[in-house]
Design a protein around this nucleic acid. Structure first.
Ligand SMILES: [Mn+2]
Ligand SMILES: [Mn+2]
Ligand SMILES: [Mn+2]
Ligand SMILES: [Mn+2]
Lengths: 232, 232
DNA sequence: CTATAAAATTAGGCAGACCTAAAATAAGCC
DNA sequence: GGCTTATTTTAGGTCTGCCTAATTTTATAG
């Protein structure tokens, strides 16, 4: 495993090697805005681990292993950058900075999905459906989403969200049940204090579509059962 | 400024406080799978910086400042998670892990764009256009994108991409010109060794639409002028 | 080919984020 | 209330990633 910084060094050495025939430690320092001694010790670590070739006063080159990793990081960078910039319309400089941070956490699955989404959008565009353009228009017209709902102190019976009727506004009191289910609910923003309402449901009663914080989410029965609510 | 880890501590303390009335250092250690002494020293730092309240053998609580930051991180987590999961269709566990890494690098601009895209998709769905569903179908049908093109050693004249005719396949030799422009080109994957072809262009000759690595990108004149190519 | 300037490296330091082992404190039980 | 056990904290250590100051090596210019 490599740290984020180590990945950044490899990526940057690769980028520099595209335009310099000899990459020196000072070139790297300049790129990152840090001091050369910091670069030297980073290079020593990368060398020990077999990612770069480097001799005193010599040029830095990527080993085969290093090149592989550098290309991998760079691919995640590009993919993320393009996605932010051309799908979400994030401004250039911000997209670049975000991508260089996010690239270290993007799994292959996520990278693939972003690539595919990009192709998908392109395909739709060729078919006359400009998703990106429509999204930009949508953003211009509609301002931002509302703020976090506040806990409200009305009193009435507590129950599980799984037994609440459609269209009734409830306040989430707590979550119980399986650890994984709770984690997933928290990931989605289903947390105590929020207001929730069942908007729609599947033919068998589940899954249910809930409205929370202005979003619509889908919950399975077991998920709905872990949510303890009170009518608001 | 807080480190990624410090942000994670705040986020986790917040999450724990939703289901425990007293959050102890050992609870945090358990959540992160680390040892209590590590948590203690992290808490000391967070306390020094005014993000948590904490006394020996007492419970940890978030200060006002800490709560603000925790909610902020958690919001980026949720937003990223939902986006990965429900727009891109990344599997649950992976989306969760990726989100918890990416959340620290997501700018407010990116977070807003993700939220808006989510609403946009929901709006389209209500209007009968299921972007997410179509995307999933698209992914199932179309396998993955091809691999990186290799540098090819044919010889012929070198020129700038800005003067190349449409439909001619070229190999990128180098980039020159403004630092910012180069950075942007590298961000997009326009790098030496890649094959590129102009696919389409604006009414005034620019911007041009290029095909590179299976993607279509748009380049402005100044960008195209920085790309030195040779016909392949 | 030497003197001087520039670049690179070494030495030593500090902070964050983890660890283990030992000591202090709190909790539970007769 | 005192004894035993569990929890929490302290002490001290490692590794990464940055720094400044001093030294060594390389480049350049007369
Ligand atoms: Mn990076
Ligand atoms: Mn990057
Ligand atoms: Mn995180
Ligand atoms: Mn998180």
């Amino acid at each position: 495993m490599l740290t984020h910084t180590a990945e950044d060094y490899l990526e940057r050495i690769y980028m520099l090697s595209l335009r310099l025939e000899r990459v020196k430690s000072s070139d790297i320092a300049k790129e990152f805005g840090i001091r050369t001694p910091s670069v030297i010790s980073a290079l020593k670590l990368l060398k020990e681990k077999g990612f770069v070739h480097y001799r005193k006063h010599g040029a830095v080159t990527l080993s085969e292993k290093g090149m592989e990793r550098a290309l991998d990081v760079y691919d995640r960078h590009k993919t993320t950058y393009r996605f932010l910039r051309f799908v979400l319309g994030v401004p250039d400089g911000i997209a670049s900075a975000d991508a260089c941070g996010m690239e270290h956490s993007v799994s292959p699955e996520t990278a693939d999905a972003m690539k595919d989404f990009f192709s998908f959008i392109r395909l739709k565009k060729d078919a006359g459906v400009d998703i990106q353009g429509e999204f930009q228009k949508f953003r211009k017209e509609k301002p931002t989403v509302g703020k976090r709902a506040r806990y409200s102190d009305t009193d009435s019976g507590t129950r599980r969200l799984s037994v609440v009727k459609d269209g009734i506004r409830c306040v989430i009191l707590k979550l119980d049940g399986d650890r994984e289910v709770k984690r997933r609910l928290l990931d989605m923003g289903v947390i105590p204090g929020e207001t929730v309402e069942i908007r729609n449901r599947g033919p068998l009663g589940f899954p249910i579509e809930i409205l929370i914080q202005g979003y619509v989410l889908t919950l399975r029965r077991d998920e709905a059962e872990s949510v303890i609510v009170r009518e608001a």
